[in-house]
Nucleic acid binder design. Sequence first.
DNA 1: GTGAAAGCGCTAACAT
DNA 2: ATGTTAGCGCTTTCAC
Lengths: 355, 355
Amino acid sequence: MEKEITIYDIARELSISPTTVSRGLNNHPAVNKNTKQKIFDAAAQMGYRSNAFASRLRKQRTNTLGVIVPRLDSNFQSLVMAGMEKVANEAGYNLIISQSLETAQKEIANARTMFENRVDGLLVSLAYDTENIDHFEPFFSKGIPLLFYDRVPENKQCTSIVINNIQAAHTATTHLVEQGCQRIVHISGNLRINVYKDRLKGYKYALMDHNIAFRENYVIETNLSEQAGVEAANKILQMDPLPDGIFVANDTCAVSCIKTLKQAGISIPGDIAVVGFNNDPITRIIEPNLTSVDYPGGEMGEVAVRSLINYLDGVSDVSITNTITLRSELVVRESSLKKKLTAPPAKSGKAAGMV
Amino acid sequence: MEKEITIYDIARELSISPTTVSRGLNNHPAVNKNTKQKIFDAAAQMGYRSNAFASRLRKQRTNTLGVIVPRLDSNFQSLVMAGMEKVANEAGYNLIISQSLETAQKEIANARTMFENRVDGLLVSLAYDTENIDHFEPFFSKGIPLLFYDRVPENKQCTSIVINNIQAAHTATTHLVEQGCQRIVHISGNLRINVYKDRLKGYKYALMDHNIAFRENYVIETNLSEQAGVEAANKILQMDPLPDGIFVANDTCAVSCIKTLKQAGISIPGDIAVVGFNNDPITRIIEPNLTSVDYPGGEMGEVAVRSLINYLDGVSDVSITNTITLRSELVVRESSLKKKLTAPPAKSGKAAGMV
DNA sequence: GTGAAAGCGCTAACAT
DNA sequence: ATGTTAGCGCTTTCAC
C-alpha cells in the first residue's frame, strides 16, 4: 500500500504551512480564496484524503452516533433505521449500528463498544431481557447523551421517544367495544417491556371505561411471533364461550392468528373481530384486511436523531430529559368491522383512520 | 465534562511505564501476570476507557467495515444487514451503515465518507441509477477490499456475492410451463440492474427451452412497487387472450398484482398462475399463498462480511476477485398450482422447494 | 519483563 | 491571512 498523502505533503508542495492547508480544506473563512483553490487543487491532484481519526483524536468529537437495536430484521426497526440514517447522513454524522439480538448480554457488550468508539450520542431500543440499564452508566456519568426509543426503560429519568401505547391500545380496544364486542381477548408480548405493558394497560382501561369486567385468562402473553399467533388462536378456540374480539400487540402475530382462526372455520370479523398493532404492510394483504395501530417507525428514527443532534449542537439544550411522544392512529379496516359504517370503509391506507 | 483517563494516568498511578500499561491492556504475552492484573484493576477502578481513535491513528487499521445499501427499509435488505451485523460483531468489527436511497449521487457521497473514515473494507449494493463505479476507484487504487452483493456491477472484475438470477428465473418460469402455462407474462424491475436483467434472461431462456415464442409485450418493466403491481395487473387484464401465467420479479409487486386480479374476478391459479421472487413473509399471507424464489438475505450478509474479514485477516487471500453464488430455490405454493401434485403440496415453508 | 522515545495526522491556541 | 508550536492517546521499535 502506497504512502498516504497528508496535509504536510500538500503544504510542502505549495510551500505553505500545514495549518493553512488544514484551514483551507475545512473552508475556514480567513483563508485567501486563491490559496484555498490552490490547496483544493493540490489535494485532488495528489490524491489526498483526510484522516478522520487524526481529526477526531484532536477534536475530541467523533461525529458518530451509535445505535443499539434489538433486531435489524424487523419491519418496524428497519423503518426506524432508515429514518435515522437519513437524518444523520444529512447532518454529516456517521451511524454505527449494532443489534442486541434481544439479549442483555449483547446489549451490554455493544454499549461498551459504543462507549470506546466515543460516539457523540447513543440511541437505544432495549432488548427483551434487559433488567436494568446499569450498562449505560458510563454514558450518564460522562454526559454523553443517551436517547431511548420505543422500548424504553421504566425509569422516567431517561430521554425517550415513544408513542402513547396506553392511549393507542385504549383506542383500539374501544373500537372493538363499539363494534359490539364484549368478550375481548388481548394477545400481548413480553410484559416486562414497557410497550407491551402499556398496551395491556390501555386494554384494561378501555374495558373498565365500558364496564366490561377484566378477565385474567383473556390475556395471552406470547413472544408475538408467527408461531405464537397460531398457538394463541388455538387457545382461543378452546374458550367457551368463544371470544368475539381480539386485540393483538403486533401485526405478525395478529395475521397468523387470523389465518389459524379462519382455517378453523371462524369468520372474521363476523364471529371474532381483530385489531393488530404496527400497521405493517401485511395488514393490507391478509383477508380480511387488518385494522391496526399505525406506528410511525420512520418518523421515530428521524425525530430521535434530530433531537440528539440538536442537543449536541446546543440548539435544544432545553432538556434532553424529556419524553417525546409521537402521534399514532388507529387505521380501521375490515377485520374489525362488525357494524357497517355509514360511509363505506376506505379500501386501504390510512383514509379511515381516526385521529 | 471531566478529564478522560489515559494510559499515562494509569502508568503514573502504578509507577510503571505507559508502554507496559498499553501492553497489559492488550493482553500482550510478555507482560507479567501480576502486573497485568494490577493494570486491569487500576483501569477499572479509575474508569479508564481506551481511545479507539488514537489506537486507529497509530495502527492504521480501523476494524470498521462500511456498508452502502440502496434502502434500509426493505425486507430483503434488513435481512442482509442483520446477517452482516451478526458476523461483524462477532469478529470485533464495527459497521458503518449508509443508504443511497437509490440515487447515484448519494452513493458517491457515501463512498467518499467511507473512504475518509478509512473503513477496512466496503460492502455495496448498487443504487438504481448508478451508471458506473468510478466513485469506488479510490478503494481499488488503495487496495481496500470492496465487495458487491446482490446488485452488482456488470464489470466482472469485482468481487461479488449473488444468487444465480438467470437460473432462478429459469426454474420459476419452467415451473409455470410445467403447470400448463403457455402465455406467461413477466413483470420485471429496472432493466439496468443486473438482478432484473438476469431474471428476464432466465425467463426468456426458459421459454425458448420449451419452444414458446418470446413476446416483447409480455414483458412489463416497472419499479416493482405495490402500486406497480396494480398497474401491471390492469395492463394484463387488457390483454387478449388473457395470459395464463405471470412471473414477477419480486413479491411485493406480485402480491398487489394478485389482489388486483382477484378483484377483477380472475381466479388464481385457475385462470392465471403466479410466481414471485424473494420469499418474503407476505407470500404466506396472500390467498392463495404465493410461489416464490427463496432468496437468502441473511446468509448473503453473513457470507459477505465473512469473506471480507477473511480477506483482511489474510486467511483467504486466495482471491477477492471472485464471484460467490449462493443457492436459491423455488418454493412452490398454491398460487402456481394448476395441476394437483401427486403428493399434496406442503402447507407452507420450504418443504416443497426444488433444489 | 519493562521502559524511552518517536510519531501516527490533525487542529487550536497563540503569535505575527 | 498565514505560520509556529504543541499535543490529542496510543503503539511500536529499539534498547536494556
